[in-house]
């Protein structure tokens, strides 16, 4: 069985690369603007009331951040309030504790 040599294969490869690169693709008289815009409008109508993804992402992040901040502040306030409530009697007790209950 006869095969091409490495040098031949190399030449053919080069010729094919040159062939590929000589195809500019610019010769195509194609203008898809009208068709694309028709589909884009249809898509936009379909997602009526739908916020574009970028804005939606932004909105979700902003809402999540604000919600997290509110939860954090509420949690801090609650913990603080509980501390105050539980610390209150303890402080009062501490005021009295220094005096021994039973003196010898």
């Amino acid at each position: 069985m006869n095969q091409h040599t490495d040098i031949d294969v190399h030449k053919l490869e080069r010729a094919l690369v040159d062939s590929y690169r000589s195809r500019s693709g610019a010769s195509y008289e194609v203008d898809v603007t009208q068709q694309v815009m028709r589909d884009v409008r249809r898509l936009d109508t379909e997602r009526e009331g739908w916020t574009p993804p970028a804005m939606l992402d932004q909105l979700i992040w902003q809402t999540a951040t604000r919600a997290a901040a509110v939860v954090l502040i509420a949690a801090m306030l609650t913990v603080g309030l509980f501390r105050l409530q539980s610390d209150g009697p303890a402080l009062v007790a501490e005021d009295f504790e220094p005096a021994p209950l039973f003196e010898e």
């Binding site: 693709g25 610019a26 203008d31 603007t33 815009m37």
Partner: peptide, 13 residues
């Protein structure tokens, strides 16, 4: 689309 159509046609072509 007008700005980039030639570029895309070149790739796809």
């Amino acid at each position: 689309i007008d700005l980039h159509q030639r570029h895309v046609i070149r790739i796809v072509g």
